[in-house]
Nucleic acid binder design. Structure first.
Lengths: 158, 158
DNA sequence: GGCGCGATAGTTATAGTATAACCCGGGTGC
DNA sequence: GCACCCGGGTTATACTATAACTATCGCGCC
């Protein structure tokens, strides 16, 4: 494969991601690394087909399954998350930096003005949800919390 | 249009939905009413194309825009919700019964065994989310909370 | 070395979800 | 009458995701 350059920040995160995968015996192949780089480097949640377009010049023969299999791997490893409301993917910086494989309750703030997504990590939300579920005899395996609105930056100059 | 019969429960809810729309000056047309009936009558979240199939025998010429326009209206009126993780729709019984137009924080428990979805209405979750967002200067317009897992009934028998 | 095996990924095709764009007709207000 | 808006018909297409089959690679084992 072609070696690709990403921003310094992304490169640093990729190095940590590699270390995590080595620890776990998971294989962050060239392709998977490349896709993770694309997600991390994007200023906004990245769509699968957008990334496919970015991948193609470096990776001939890339097709939808190419990108979706890489994304599945990255999701399993907790290196990225899917934003359901956008059908797009964001890097899980927390997971990468903390080597935290827990499928912690993921929470997103989606700005409808600038399209950026901020990831929260609020224990209270998870606990409230857990409590409410237990009240119904429901056992939670995973959850998605996504709020849409306007971020501070956009509200200021808006 | 063809007049269609739904379960007694659904019929009752439809009558209330009509009253709500009259109050608001919104037009719950035959088509929209029919689609709302399909959503309310379904034991599980209903997919747009499934409903389209159910619609066709009664409504010749129904096409994707037919159903999506009706769904958009019902979503705006708070009569139904979309379950993002399933790309499917459920009735908002609370909204219909309470004549509550607020886009209250919607919370779902999705059972991966039986496919049923339970709607919660927990104020704490909404408050926690609101607080966390405010901390970032973020103003929330709407939010989705979706937990996947196993419901009490499914856990019991197996 | 040769063999078997599992994981990765190439390739083609298709399923599933949602919207664009344009037209038409019916009701309302003037 | 006619200008306007809204609901809806119709056709086409965009966007998202997966199925199914094949090929290849690396590795342990004998």
């Amino acid at each position: 494969m072609d070696s690709v350059t990403f921003s310094p920040r992304t490169s640093g995160l990729l190095a940590q991601a590699e270390a995590i995968c080595v620890d776990r015996g998971a294989r962050l192949t060239g392709l998977r690394r490349h896709v993770l780089g694309l997600v991390l480097d994007a200023p906004k949640p990245a769509g699968a087909y957008d990334m496919l377009d970015q991948l193609r010049p470096h990776h001939k023969g890339a097709a939808p399954p190419t990108i979706y299999r890489a994304l599945d791997f990255l999701l399993e490893q907790g290196l990225i998350h899917k934003v359901e409301r956008l059908a797009a993917f964001v890097g899980c910086v927390h997971g990468i930096e903390q080597h935290d494989h827990h499928h912690h309750t993921v929470q997103f703030l989606i700005c409808t003005r600038c399209g950026r997504v901020e990831e929260l990590n609020d224990a209270k939300i998870g606990k409230s949800l857990e409590q409410a579920a237990t009240g119904s005899g429901f056992v939670i395996h995973g959850s998605t919390v996504e709020a849409e609105g306007v971020c501070g930056a956009c509200a200021d100059h808006g």
